[in-house]
Simulated assay, not measured.
Amino acid sequence: MARASEAFLEKATSLAEKTFWGYVGCEMIELEEQRVVVELDVEPHHLNLIGILHGGVHATMLDSAMGILVMAAHSDAKMVTTNLNIHYLAQAKEERVRVEAEIVHESRSMMTTEGKLLNESGDLCALATATFRKS
């Protein structure tokens, strides 16, 4: 999948810059067959009113990372999120955060993934699972 991943990564990166992904400022660091890594430099506009990373940014990064992974695995199909479950565990502030996601199950029409959002210290800030369906 290395060549397919490189081609997908190049195309996805180009397209993503003009979407919500680009607006938020996410950066794809690594894409492998079963794993993706996405990072974000948290800035003041990513914070909520109490000065920590907004839960919606957590959700955006996790859903996007897991979605990219399933789209790369099935570049011939449109994959849509059918379920996203997030556990918020620790805070992140103005720092570089990282999402690591992997595929945990696959059937003919559905894929289940797991994603972890880590702060700069390596603390687990959020844990998510998501299910995607071929559309």
Score class of each variant (00 low, 15 high):
V80Q: 06
R35H: 15
R35W: 02
N83F: 03
Q34D: 15
N83P: 03
T82L: 08
E95D: 06
W21E: 07
V80H: 10
A59P: 01
M66V: 05
G55R: 12
K78R: 15
D76F: 07
G22H: 08
Y23I: 14
Q34K: 13
A92D: 04
G51E: 08
V38K: 05
H74F: 13
D41G: 04
E39D: 13
N48L: 03
H74D: 11
M61W: 00
E39V: 07
K78V: 14
I86G: 09
G55I: 12
S64L: 06
E27G: 02
H87P: 01
G25V: 04
I52C: 08
G55A: 14
W21T: 13
Y23K: 11
E27P: 00
E33V: 07
I86K: 08
I29A: 14
E33S: 14
A72Q: 13
M66L: 09
T13G: 15
K78H: 12
L31K: 09
M28C: 10
I52Y: 04
I50Y: 08
H58V: 01
V42F: 03
E30L: 14
V57P: 07
Y88N: 08
F20A: 11
L89F: 12
E43Y: 02
Q91R: 12
L31M: 12
Y88S: 11
E30G: 06
E43W: 01
H74I: 05
A65T: 07
L31V: 10
M61E: 05
Q91G: 12
V37G: 13
S14H: 07
A12M: 13
A59M: 02
I50E: 09
E32N: 09
E17A: 15
H87A: 15
G25K: 01
Q34G: 11
K18A: 04
P44H: 01
D76T: 12
H45P: 09
H45G: 00
V36P: 10
L84T: 07
N83Y: 08
S75T: 06
A16T: 04
L49K: 07
M79D: 04
A16S: 14
H58G: 04
K18W: 07
R35Y: 13
S64T: 15
S14P: 00
G67I: 05
T81N: 09
A65R: 07
D41F: 00
I52T: 15
V36G: 09
L69K: 09
G51T: 11
E27M: 11
G56M: 02
E33M: 00
N85F: 02
M61I: 12
L62G: 10
D76N: 15
E39K: 14
G25D: 03
S64A: 14
N85G: 10
T82P: 05
K93L: 11
Y88V: 09
V24D: 06
Q34F: 01
V37S: 12
Q91M: 05
A59D: 02
L31N: 12
G51V: 03
E33G: 11
Q91D: 09
Y23D: 07
L47N: 00
Q91C: 01
D63F: 02
I68L: 15
N48Y: 13
H58N: 12
H74V: 05
V36R: 05
A12D: 10
A65Y: 05
L62T: 08
M79W: 01
V70P: 10
V42R: 00
G51A: 09
V57T: 07
L40D: 01
E27F: 00
T82G: 15
